[in-house]
C-alpha cells in the first residue's frame, strides 16, 4: 500500500449515447502530492474520479490507487481512500455525530473508537455545536464540511475531491481550502482534486492537469503552465466587432511566433515583451484602420492558459475539418 495514483491509457465509453467521456488518459500522482484536474463541465473529471474510486469500471486501460488495481481489488482500494463526490452523501435524518460514527463503524472502528474519532473530526470541521442536530437542518456549507469529515474517517492515504467547493460561499470555501492544505502538508495525504476554478487549482495544487473533452491537454506546475504561454498577455477589444476576425488574421500574419486568439469580443495576444509588443500592435492596427476600443497588458492567469489551450485545440480540430 502506498499513497500513489498510477493511471495508464484510461478510457471510458458510456454505452448510452456512445459518449467517450475519458479518452486514453495517463498520469501519475506521487505520494503526498496535491494534484488538480482542471477542466470545464463535462470534460471527464467526474468520470475519472468515479473510475479511480471504484464506483464505475473503465472501458479500457489501467489504474492503480494506493498500490491496488481499481478493477481487480476494489475492496482494498476503498479501505485507503476518502472520497467527496460533487453531491454530498449524507442521511438527512441522522445527526452529524451519528453520521460520522456510522461511517467509522463501517470502516471497522469499535464503538468507543468511533465516538472518539467522530469528536475529533467534528472539531476539525468545526461542527461540534451542530453535532446533535439532524443533518436535514444543516446549511449547504455545513453539509459540505460534514461530508469532508466523512471522507477523513478512515485516515485515508489518498483523498479524492470532486469539485469540493462548487456552490460554496467564500468563507466556507476558504475553510475547506485550509483544511485540505493542512491535510496535505501536516498529515501527508495525497490529494486528487477536480475543479473548474482556476484560482483553486493555482492556489492549492503542486501540479495541474488540464482536461478538456476527455483528454489531458496540458500538465505541469502552475508556474510551468504559466511559463508555457509566454510572459505577458495583451487583451484588446475593437470598436467595430465585425472587423475582429479579419484583424486577428492580419495580426497573425504580421507578428510571427506570437499566439493570437480570437475569443468572443476579445483578442488575446500572448507575447514575450509586453510593452514593446503592445506598441507594435497599436501601430499595426492603426495602420490598417482597426480602431481599438480598449487595450490592456497583464500577466497571464491560469484562466488565460486554460482558454488558450482549449481554443488552440478547437481551432486545431476546425483546421482538420476544413
Amino acid at each position: 500500500m502506498n499513497g500513489k495514483i498510477v493511471v495508464e491509457h484510461l478510457t471510458k465509453t458510456f454505452k448510452k449515447g456512445n459518449v467517450q467521456a475519458v479518452k486514453d488518459v495517463s498520469f501519475e500522482v506521487e505520494e503526498g502530492e496535491f494534484f488538480a484536474f482542471l477542466g470545464p463541465n463535462g470534460a471527464g473529471k467526474s468520470t475519472t474520479v468515479q473510475i479511480l474510486t471504484t464506483l464505475i469500471n473503465a472501458t479500457s486501460g489501467k489504474a492503480e490507487v494506493a498500490g491496488h488495481d481499481v478493477i481487480r481489488e476494489p475492496e482494498k482500494v476503498r479501505r485507503y481512500i476518502g472520497v467527496a463526490l460533487q453531491e454530498t452523501g449524507v442521511d438527512p435524518d441522522l445527526t452529524g455525530r451519528e453520521m460520522i460514527e456510522l461511517q467509522a463503524n463501517i470502516f471497522g472502528f469499535r464503538k468507543e473508537e468511533g465516538k472518539k474519532r467522530a469528536q475529533e473530526l467534528l472539531e476539525i470541521v468545526q461542527l461540534t455545536e451542530a453535532a446533535e442536530r439532524r443533518i436535514g437542518n444543516y446549511s449547504g456549507g455545513m453539509r459540505r464540511r460534514l461530508d469532508l469529515a466523512l471522507t477523513l474517517v478512515n485516515e485515508p492515504k489518498i483523498l479524492f475531491l470532486d469539485e469540493p467547493t462548487t456552490g460554496l460561499d467564500p468563507s466556507n470555501r476558504m475553510a475547506i481550502w485550509e483544511e485540505l492544505r493542512r491535510l496535505n502538508e501536516e498529515v501527508g495525504t495525497t490529494i486528487f482534486l477536480t475543479t473548474q476554478y482556476l484560482e483553486e487549482a493555482d492556489s492549492l495544487a503542486h501540479r495541474i492537469s488540464i482536461i478538456n473533452d476527455g483528454e489531458i491537454v496540458a500538465t505541469g506546475t502552475p508556474k510551468e503552465l504559466k511559463a508555457q504561454i509566454g510572459n505577458d498577455l495583451i487583451t484588446l477589444t475593437l470598436k467595430n466587432e465585425k472587423q475582429q476576425s479579419e484583424a486577428v488574421e492580419y495580426l497573425r500574419g504580421q507578428m510571427a511566433g506570437v499566439d493570437v486568439i480570437n475569443r468572443q469580443n476579445k483578442v488575446l495576444i500572448y507575447v514575450e515583451e509586453g510593452t514593446k509588443q503592445l506598441l507594435e500592435v497599436v501601430r499595426l492596427f492603426d495602420q490598417e484602420g482597426y480602431e481599438i476600443e480598449d487595450i490592456q497588458l497583464s500577466s497571464p492567469t491560469l484562466d488565460d492558459i486554460f482558454l488558450k489551450i482549449t481554443s488552440e485545440k478547437k481551432e486545431g480540430v476546425r483546421a482538420v475539418g476544413e
Binding site: 471504484t54 464506483l55 476503498r78 479501505r79 472520497v83 453531491e87 452523501g89 471497522g108
Partner: peptide, 10 residues
C-alpha cells in the same frame, strides 16, 4: 447521495 457514499466504503 448516501447510497453512493456507502458504495465508496468497504
Amino acid at each position: 447521495g448516501f447510497f453512493s457514499r456507502l458504495l465508496l466504503t468497504p
